[in-house]
Write a protein that binds this DNA or RNA. Sequence first.
DNA 1: TTGTAGGCGTTATCAA
DNA 2: TTGATAACGCCTACAA
Lengths: 340, 340
Amino acid sequence: MAVTIKRIAELTGVSRGTVDRVLNDRGNVNSETAERIRKVAKELGYSPNRAGRALAAKKKKYRIGIILCSEGIEFFDEVLHGISGMEQEAADYGVSLVVRTMRGYNVGRQLDLIHEVGAETNLIILNAINDPKIAEAIDELNGKGIAVITINTDIEGTKRLCYVGSDYLRNGATAAGVLGLITGGKGNVAIAGGSEAILGHLDRVEGFRQELQEHFPEEKISTIFYTEDDDETARREMDRVLKECPDITAVYISAAGQAGVCRAISENGRNDICVVSCDRTPSVEKLVKEDRIRATICQQPYTQGKKAVELALQYLINGIVPDKDRYIMKNEIRIRENIE
Amino acid sequence: MAVTIKRIAELTGVSRGTVDRVLNDRGNVNSETAERIRKVAKELGYSPNRAGRALAAKKKKYRIGIILCSEGIEFFDEVLHGISGMEQEAADYGVSLVVRTMRGYNVGRQLDLIHEVGAETNLIILNAINDPKIAEAIDELNGKGIAVITINTDIEGTKRLCYVGSDYLRNGATAAGVLGLITGGKGNVAIAGGSEAILGHLDRVEGFRQELQEHFPEEKISTIFYTEDDDETARREMDRVLKECPDITAVYISAAGQAGVCRAISENGRNDICVVSCDRTPSVEKLVKEDRIRATICQQPYTQGKKAVELALQYLINGIVPDKDRYIMKNEIRIRENIE
DNA sequence: TTGTAGGCGTTATCAA
DNA sequence: TTGATAACGCCTACAA
C-alpha cells in the first residue's frame, strides 16, 4: 500500500489538512507537529500521487502560452506537432495551450506577443530572440510569477526556468564528423550558411569549423556564402561559388535553402560533390532518398515541442522544477537508409 | 469546461452510473437510453479523463510482469533503465512492476518464468524466444485474459498485443549505408556475426547484405564469422580472418564482441580498416571515441523499455489498445561527434 | 493552530 | 434496469 497523506495523518494522529500544510509549506502549523510529520513522511518515503494532484489541479484552469517564430519555416511543423500531441494530456489536467506564431525575428513583434500572451497565461514557452529587450521581458514576467521555458533558441542572462533545444555547436561538429568520414578527411568544403542574424546558425558553422580543424585538418574550408533561408538565393549563390571555385568537393548546408543548393549542383553536373545538411523537412527527405544529400543532421523537433510542454505541465501541476538547466536534443544522423 | 460523465448525465437526465455503463459497454442498460447517451457523448466529443481513471484504477492493484533474457548482456542495462524510469509513474497508478531476468535463450527456462510470473500478474512484457512452445504459452496467457507485449524480439503467429523493438533488417541496412558511405562504396567486407541462434542478429546480417547488394555493388563480402557474443572468441576469429584474407578493408560487427574484434585489428596493425558496429555499451562508446570504431548503429534501448511499460499502463488503466502492431525504434547512427 | 468537508472524474458496489 | 454513494489522493475554503 502506497503511502498517502491520509495514512500519514492517521499515523501521526492529526488531520489530513495539517499534513498537507506541512508537506507543502503552507505555514500555520505548530513547529513540533510539523517536525514529527516531516519525519514520518520521510521515513515512509512519501511521494505525492500525480493522479490525485492532477485531479485537484483541474479546478485552477491553468493556461500555457507558446510563442514561436515559426511562420514560413517548415522545420517548426514538427515542433508544433509535438506540442499538439500533448494537448489531450494537458486538457486532462485542466490546462489549455495557447499558441501564437510570428514570421521572422522582429523584436518589437515578439515583445507585443509576450505582453499579450503574458496577460492571460501562467507560463510561457518562448522561442526567444536573443535580444536584451526580450531578456528584460522574461525577467518582468518572472516578477509577475509567470515562468518562462525557452525552446529551440536560448537566451543568456535571464531567469528562464530551463531551455529545451539543440546544442548547435555539437550539431555543427556532428556534421563535420559525418562529412569528414564520407570524404575521407580530405577536400575543399563550401559552407552554405543561413542568415547571419540567427545565433543557432552561426553556432553550427562555428562547431563545424572547430571540429574540422581538430580532427580533419586536411579539409579546407574554401568559402562560405549565405542562403538567407531562401531556395532561389541559395541556388544563385551556390552556382556562383561552383563557377568561382570549381575544386569544391563538399558542401555543408547549415540552414534552409537545401533544395536550391542541390539544384545548382545538379545544373553544374557536379553530383560527385558530397552534401551534408541540417534537419529533415519533406524536401530534404526527398533529396536524401535521391542520394543528392548524403546525410542530414536532425535535432528532434517533435521531441522539442513535446518535452517543453511536459516540463511546463509538471511545473504547474506538480510544482516540479525541471532538474536540468538545459534539455539538449540528440543530434541525429539521417542517411538514405534510416530517414524512413 | 471539459465534458465529463457527470455533465452527460445531467444533460441526458440519467445518473452517472448509467452513463458509465453505456460508455464502457458494461451492459444492463435500456437500449434507447444507451443510444441517447452515446449520441450526446459523441456530439460533445467526450473523452475520458486520464487522471480520474488513474485514481479510480488504484483500487485494482494491477501488476505488470517483465521477462528479459538480459543477464550478462550489457545492451539490456539501458532497457532496464527505461523500465525502472517508469516505476514511479506506474506506482501512481497503483501498478507494480515485477522484473525477472534469465541468462541465455533456454526455452524451458522461459516457459517456467512465464508460468511463474503469469500466475500473479495482469500483463506480461516478454523478450520472447522465437519458439513454437513460447508462442503457445502466449496464446494460453491470452486465454486467461493476460495480455502480452513483446519487447526487443518479436514472435510470429501469436495474439500478442504488440511488439516494441527494432526492425533488424532496417538496422542492418543502415549499417550498410554508413559503411558504404565511409568506404566510398568499394572494398572487401568481413562480417562479424553474433550467434546463429538469434533471429535478430541473422536479420541484421541479411539487411546488411541486401542493402550492400542494391546500393554498393562494388563492396564484396569476403567472409562471415561468429563471435558467439564473446570478446575472446571474437578476437581469435578476427585474427584468423585477417591472416587468411589480408585484403579486408572493412568489418561489420552485428552483435557483441566489439572489443575483441578491435583488439585483433590493432594487434595486426590494421587500423586503416573501417569498423561499423551495433549498439552503444560503455566499451563501444570508448572504442568510438578512440576512432577504432567509425560508427555504431543503435536501437534506442532506453525507449524500448520505457515505451513497453507506457503501452502496458495505458492498456491496463485506460483500456487503450495500442494503435500499432509494431512500435519500431529509430536506427540511430552514432559517431565520435554525437556519441556523447 | 487545527479539523472538517466537499470536489476534481471515474469506477464499483449496493440498494431500489 | 437504474440511482445513490463511497472511494481513489490531493487541495482548499471554511469552521472551530
